[in-house]
Design a protein around this nucleic acid. Structure first.
Length: 800
RNA sequence: GCGGGUGUGGCGAAAUUGGCAGACGCGCUGGUCUUAGGAACCAGUGGGAUUCCGUGCAGGUUCAACUCCUGUCACCCGCACCA
């Protein structure tokens, strides 16, 4: 009898559904396990096999946990607001609501065909008003607490998409959506004050179990640096130019200062600056440059000296010339620096370009050649002379600066506040009213959700205005406080808003009173294991940790870190080894694979391909190997015999169960599957196994290939569903061999292997080894100086 | 430039963390059965050769190195004039 996946797979999917086999219980004596995968953006293209790999990791772990007796919450939903849907709507004229519904339906059917054990009773769609009501609610709480605010600043702006972008969405100076160059534009925009949580976001990493590279990326992104603010008096005034430096120890080496082209001091002291025309000309050139261009010319330093404007070095009273240059950014530190060319390469390049003095204050380098950035003995530095330790020098200088009131220790972060509004339709409306008498007023909580109005035209305005601005009935409203005529905010929230808290909603998805019930939150949080893509670690993961910490401070959630553990899967590349993309035409559709081989084969293959965390190319022919394996598993059904284990098979079964049990926990799915393949090969050689052995194998394979395992489970008379049957327990004693094969080396070169009792002592092993022909031949005429014996592994004769 | 990662057969990859390099799978070769096979099954498969060489390259530590150390090259990813 052959294995007919086309009949078996839908059969069991239906049964799981009818029995609500994978629904989590909110009340249970069992230990809870919350496993979370990043919910998909339902694009029109449907899912590709990369999605399947992304979900299969925790799918296996969730299924194993259920079999181990846990109450498992493994939910799924749709992250459905966003530009691709809106752009599609603009192109086709179909409303984003309809597009989203259609795509969600497509994704759902694909996911179901794979047989994922999601709890389908908790599906959420972030574009559902009952969901985004709470996204708006959280925004209002942030507004109330001063974490959501408006400011006029230079922002990243995509001229093609006509939207303001966050730093995170414009990495490398390119728009994350359309990849065109981002320009800097002065606009009044909404921000979320994520920087307030910078230190907590950093500290929090110490107590969570994230893969090391994920942690490191977040640490870099937050970019904490410790240094000092130092005030340089502006000559001829009582005003100061405040700078930030990480090297206060080099203060004696300052020979010039640089301020950003946008620095306010230029306007404030415009009348003092004699070459204002030249300065303004330079400012105009900088403003035209995109962020991308500005980071291109790293070596060629440009700038203009401010004539008639200088500062005083507070440490020695020296007059210091001040320049403007675009290598200093307004967005970091104070937008002004003290330049120490002897010990900073950028300052060095600038000094060479402009013929400025270079004063060595740390010995050890050759400042005629380049800046010396290592540590060494301080010179030309007044009271610091002779100090050789950098830390000590910094500490002494800080102490001095603070005692004189001219500077203070300071911490800076690279992370910037989150630019939060988008001039787009398909997002959550920001629930704020601009009232001419009362200013910015939040929409009252009991009026939430503030629904997206029906529109015909989704095109953003040419002046960078939201499509909502054209809807008079939406824009014109009453001021919530005074009742007078007012205007609604017309911008919407960015794509990352709704995903910043979705894992909380899964816990209580149908609650109409609160975002989720406290008791349930207390039971399920934190997420025990969260898996997703590397591309989200500096965006979604940081954003959601920030929202979570805020909700924790409000007392809404019971733990301060949302995710106890975070891992990331590697990409599936196209068969050509390139990243899968529609334009390259190398995308593999899971439906095509399921049509030919079935879901169990697809699931097994995406996990067998290689290291789960690493990228690997798709191979159509390799899929067939997994198909053969699944079919050979089916064949085991016809090799059963009632009783009487073959001792070697019994041992191998227990060893395999042990390996599978352990490997799954480390996401080493590829070696777990390989072990089961080996075992199968071995059983085929012997030709039989007991029903009990088969039962163990089926259960261990069931997280990977659940459909065939259910069918086999039923046929061997297993009780209930295989998916909920107890995880097979191996007998440790049966995993240990009585005799082992050890390698025998002579002078480190392998000569042969010999069988010895597992607990053989050195003398026994040596005796057995010496009887081996090849070993004896190699030792012929030599004197053994030393014998090295590692039990169960190796015996090495060191001989002359 | 900084941070993270990866280099192992024709290919995807393993290696109990210093102990038999190449498990498992693909592909390939030969065979069996077939009208046929891009099906199934069986056997073989790192390279040269009769005892050597092989984990990007060059050194080192060790009885023993894919694994540890020093240097170096290549590729991938992230950040990037961050003061």
């Amino acid at each position: 009898m052959t294995y007919d996946f086309k009949e078996i797979e839908p059969k069991w999917q239906k049964i799981w559904d009818e029995k609500k086999a994978f629904e989590a219980s909110d009340k249970s004596d069992k230990k809870k396990f919350y496993s979370l995968v990043e919910f998909p953006y339902p694009s029109g293209a449907g899912m590709h096999v990369g999605h399947i790999k992304a979900y299969s990791g925790l799918e296996v772990i969730s299924r194993k946990r259920r079999m181990e007796g846990y109450n498992v919450l493994f939910p799924i939903g749709f992250d459905a607001f966003g530009l691709p849907t809106e752009n599609y709507a603009i192109k086709t004229g179909i409303h984003p609501r309809q597009v989203t519904d259609k795509n969600v339906e497509k994704f759902t059917s694909q996911l179901r065909r794979v047989g994922f054990s999601f709890d389908w009773s908790r599906v959420i769609d972030t574009t559902d008003v009952d969901y985004y009501k709470w996204t708006q609610w959280i925004f209002l709480k942030m507004f109330e607490n001063g974490l959501a605010f408006r400011d006029t600043a230079l922002v990243n702006y995509c001229p093609s998409c006509k939207v303001v972008l966050s730093n995170e969405d414009s990495q490398g100076g390119k728009c994350d959506i359309c990849h065109s160059d981002v320009v800097q534009k002065s606009k009044t925009v909404w921000y979320l004050r994520i920087t307030k949580y910078a230190d907590q976001l950093l500290q929090g990493l110490e107590k969570v179990d994230y893969l090391p590279n994920i942690k490191q990326q977040q640490v870099n992104w937050i970019g904490k640096s410790t240094g000092a603010f130092v005030n340089f008096q502006i000559k001829g005034t009582n005003d100061n130019l405040k700078i930030y430096t990480t090297r206060p120890d080099t203060l004696y080496g300052v020979t010039f200062m640089v301020i950003a082209p946008e620095h306010p001091a230029i306007e404030k002291y415009a009348d003092q600056i004699k070459n204002l025309d030249k300065v303004n000309e330079y400012k105009a050139i900088c403003a035209k440059k995109t962020e991308f261009e500005r980071t291109q010319l790293i070596k060629d330093k440009t700038g203009v000296k401010l004539d008639g404007f200088s500062a005083i070095n507070p440490i020695n009273g020296k007059e210091i010339p001040v320049y403007i240059a675009d290598y200093v950014m307004m967005g970091y530190g104070t937008g002004a620096i003290m330049a120490v060319p002897a010990h900073d390469q950028r300052d060095y390049d600038f000094a060479k370009e402009f013929g400025i003095d270079i004063i060595e204050v740390i010995k050890g380098g050759n400042i005629a050649e380049c800046a010396y950035t290592e540590s060494g003995e301080m010179v030309n530095s007044g009271f610091l002379n002779g100090v050789a330790d950098k830390k000590e020098a910094v500490a002494k200088m800080l102490e001095y600066l603070e005692s004189k009131g001219i500077g203070e220790a300071a911490v800076q972060y690279k992370m910037k506040d989150w630019a939060f509004n988008r001039q787009r339709y398909w997002g959550e409306p920001i629930p704020i009213v601009h009232c001419p008498t009362c200013g910015m007023v939040p929409v009252p909580y009991d009026e939430l959700p503030l629904k997206l109005p029906a529109v015909e035209n989704f095109e953003p305005g040419t002046d960078g205005e939201s499509p909502l601005a054209k809807i008079d009935s939406f824009v014109n409203c009453k001021g919530p406080k005074c009742g007078g005529a007012a205007k609604s905010e017309t911008d919407t929230m960015p794509q990352w808003a709704c995903s910043s808290w979705y894992f909380l909603r899964y816990i209580d998805p149908h609650n109409t009173e609160k975002l989720a019930d406290e008791e349930k939150l207390k039971y399920w949080l934190p997420v025990d294991w969260y898996n997703g893509g590397m591309e989200h670690v500096t965006r979604h993961v940081i954003y959601s940790r920030f929202w979570h910490k805020f909700l924790y401070d409000l007392g809404i959630v019971p733990v301060d870190e949302p995710y106890a553990k975070r891992t990331a899967q590697g990409l599936i590349l196209g068969p050509d080894g390139d990243k899968m993309s529609k334009s390259k035409g190398n995308v593999v559709d899971p439906n095509d694979v399921i049509d030919v081989y079935g879901a169990d084969v697809l699931r097994t293959y995406v996990l067998f391909m290689g290291d789960y965390t690493m990228a690997a190319p798709w191979s159509d022919s390799s899929v067939r190997g997994c198909k053969r394996f699944i079919e050979r598993i089916w064949g085991l059904l016809f090799m059963q015999k009632g009783s009487g284990s073959t001792p070697a098979i019994e041992k191998s079964v227990h060893k395999t169960i042990k390996k599978v049990t352990e490997d799954i926990e480390q996401m080493k799915f590829n070696t777990a599957i390989a072990a089961m393949m080996s075992l199968t090969n071995e059983i085929y050689e012997v030709g039989s196994l007991t029903t009990e052995e088969l039962s163990m194998i089926i259960r261990a394979l069931s997280p990977f290939a659940p459909h065939i395992c259910e069918e086999m489970w039923e046929r061997i008379g297993g009780e209930g569903l295989c998916s909920l049957a107890p995880w097979p327990v191996y007998d440790e004693s049966k995993t240990i061999d009585d005799t082992v094969t050890i390698a025998v080396q002579v002078c480190g070169k392998m000569k042969d292997t010999v069988m010895v009792p597992a607990d053989a002592d050195q003398a026994t092993a040596v005796e057995i080894a010496k009887q081996n022909e090849k070993v004896a031949a190699a030792l012929e005429g030599k004197t053994v100086i030393k014998e090295i014996y590692v039990k169960g592994k190796i015996l090495n004769f060191v001989a002359k």
